[in-house]
Write a protein that binds this DNA or RNA. Structure first.
Lengths: 234, 234
DNA sequence: CCAAAAGTGTTTTCTCTACACCCATGT
DNA sequence: ACATGGGTGTAGAGAAAACACTTTTGG
């Protein structure tokens, strides 16, 4: 039975992970990139990637790559696109499936990051990336921009408690444009998915801004009732 | 150089094509399915698929599979999703990337279709499909439903000239719900992408309905000016 | 007391929705 | 003349957009 398809060729198949993080201080969307430590293109910047093993599903492979780099499990992760050009990798013909992950920058395992030569780089000024990794990033970013309008994935990039100013800054960083403060607040609050905490963030202003928390369970409940998340504001 | 990655395993990689067509008479969205003529699952219904060859890109493979079945080139085609579960194919571990295509039913090469044992089946009452092909169809259909709201892809499923009634019927078949006639017409016509022809379709009514044509070039021009297609009507 | 950032409502504009009758023609 | 499907407009509701001042407090 295992020889049924044997007249057909086999291929290397890899996963590459586009790892997004949000720098709450610099108000910049960032990407976790690594200095490649093997040939070809050793020393160049690349996405975190790895080959799919014999008895490993593609999803497992993507999770493994992410875990090795960040020490994190159960990340928000989504498949982006499969790249199948014959010459995309000069080392050999490799088919690569890209995944993008959203992670809370502050939750990352610094040691692992060091070991793997990983660095956060602002999406606005990325270095040159190997192969077709820039294309992968562009596509994933476009998907993220669409996604964040219509699903509450922004919260994956923020700490548990965040202020409305921080949330808006995140949206502005991802959309790459300004948003009207009053309209933004009106819309996000009207969805009833945030809980106001009895605590203020006092680092960035004298007055201080109230912390909020995203209530995930409420979103699940609402969704079942046919509610749609929407934060596509001017 | 070609042995660089050789410690890693290789995999069979296939493409599977979800081929949508629209039956203008029965007002039904259809899928082109084939009776599989090889083991495993010989004789069962499946999507059109094929393995990726040595020096063939994934896109080329998908086009080849489509061409073999339909005799058509330059179809509207889009990658849908990569399926990488270890046990998805009982014959061997096969990674499969699905593509969906939109074709004008009447343009198909009947002979090829016969030879390949291909049949149009209504999406509303599909037979059991092999492996995870049903999941592939479900995902592709959801993508089509989203896509058709926001890109003028519906016209790929209709003949060159079509009536507004036919266009609306198509949208109703894909959305699987009714649409208000006046609102639909108002919205599609206000986009200025259709040209009214001096000819009526007289088969289905005594009065006859005006034929229209989609002006693809106009869409390209508008898009450059930041215009967005939208046909998300009640 | 003042600089700096947080927070707050209203009006206008536009888009979406609901809805019912006349038109053309082949039989 | 009538049955059949094609074609048309308007009013009301709701959502999106535009817009500027007050509050708080650390220094």
């Amino acid at each position: 039975m295992t020889r049924i398809y044997s007249k057909h060729p086999k291929h290397f198949v890899a996963v590459d992970c586009i790892i997004f993080g949000y720098d709450i201080i610099e108000k910049e969307l960032k990407l976790l990139l690594i200095k490649r430590n093997f040939e070809p293109a050793k020393g160049k910047w690349s996405l975190a990637g790895g080959f799919i093993a014999e008895n490993e599903s593609m999803t497992q492979a993507a999770c493994r790559v992410l875990y090795q780099l960040t020490g994190l499990k159960n990340l928000y992760m989504e498949q982006s696109y499969a790249y199948g050009g014959v010459d995309r990798d000069p080392g050999a013909r490799v088919i690569s499936v890209s995944y993008f992950a959203l992670i809370k920058i502050q939750s990352i395992d610094k040691d692992r990051q060091e070991i793997n030569g990983a660095h956060w780089r602002s999406i606005a000024k990325l270095p040159d990336l190997i192969f077709d990794h820039k294309r992968m990033v562009d596509r994933a970013l476009a998907e993220l921009q669409n996604n964040i309008k219509v699903r509450p994935v922004g919260f994956e990039l923020l700490p548990e408690k965040f202020t409305l100013v921080q949330l808006q800054d995140l949206y502005e960083a991802i959309y790459q444009r300004g948003i009207d403060k009053r309209n933004f607040r009106k819309k996000i609050l009207s969805m009833n998915l945030l809980e106001k905490l009895d605590e203020k963030e006092k680092m960035t202003s004298k007055k201080g801004a109230w912390y909020y928390r995203f209530i995930h369970q409420k979103y699940i409940d609402f969704k079942e009732k046919g509610f749609y998340f929407n934060l596509d504001v001017n």
